[in-house]
Amino acid sequence: MAGAVGGLLLVYIVLLLLLWGYARRHPETVTMKDALRLLPDLLRLLRRLLADKTLGAGVRIRLALLLAYLLSPVDLVPDFVPVIGYADDVIIVALVLRAVIARAGEEALSRNWPGTPDGLRLVLRLAGLGAPR
């Protein structure tokens, strides 16, 4: 029992270190202020993408899991932890968006984006891509 708990703690610590390292290597991606400003449009985007029947089931499952994680009171890193408390959510959203865009294409994202063109460019930058085509 102690070995299992120790193993889980070790995996958790390694994951925290990886998230912290990612946040430090890519601080220019999106500022926290920009991410918070995007939140309402991003939540509407996720809901619209989930309802988009032209997207594959795998894409919609990823989006549903992301929404469940974001709505869950249990967080990978508690939000009261400085810097990485909120950064883990931003990083997870970026990774899922990158996977969704890779499978569904930028066109699906552009078609379902409810906000401004500047916001769309910011979301694409968050996902590790450039400006929309």
Rank of each mutant, 00 (worst) to 15 (best):
L70N: 06
V81S: 10
I84W: 14
G58E: 15
L76C: 10
L55Q: 10
L76V: 14
L76S: 12
D75I: 05
P40F: 01
V90M: 02
R60C: 05
A64E: 02
K53L: 12
P73A: 10
A51M: 15
V81P: 09
A87P: 04
D89K: 15
R48I: 11
L50C: 09
L97T: 06
L49I: 13
G115S: 14
L97I: 06
V74D: 05
E28A: 12
L38C: 04
L50P: 07
F80Y: 09
N112E: 15
R111W: 14
D52C: 12
P78C: 09
L50Q: 15
A68F: 01
R62E: 07
E28H: 07
V59C: 04
V81D: 09
E107V: 15
R60F: 07
L70S: 06
L67S: 13
V96T: 01
L45W: 08
V90S: 04
P82L: 11
P40G: 00
L55M: 14
P114N: 04
P40Q: 06
R62H: 05
E106G: 08
G85W: 06
L46Q: 03
A94M: 00
A102P: 07
L45P: 05
R111Q: 15
L71F: 03
E28R: 07
W113D: 04
T31V: 06
V59W: 05
E107I: 15
D34K: 02
R62V: 08
E107R: 14
V30E: 02
A102D: 14
I92W: 02
L36R: 12
G85M: 05
L55V: 12
R103F: 10
V77W: 15
G58V: 13
L95A: 07
L43D: 13
L95F: 04
T29V: 11
R60E: 08
A108F: 05
M32H: 03
D79M: 10
P117H: 03
Y69K: 02
L39Y: 05
L42Y: 06
L70R: 09
D89S: 13
L50N: 12
G105N: 11
Y86A: 05
L120M: 08
V30P: 00
P73T: 05
L55I: 11
V81N: 11
Y86M: 08
P114T: 01
A68P: 02
L36E: 03
R62C: 02
V59G: 02
F80L: 08
R44E: 08
V30T: 03
V83E: 12
G58I: 13
R44M: 05
V90A: 07
L55F: 12
V77N: 15
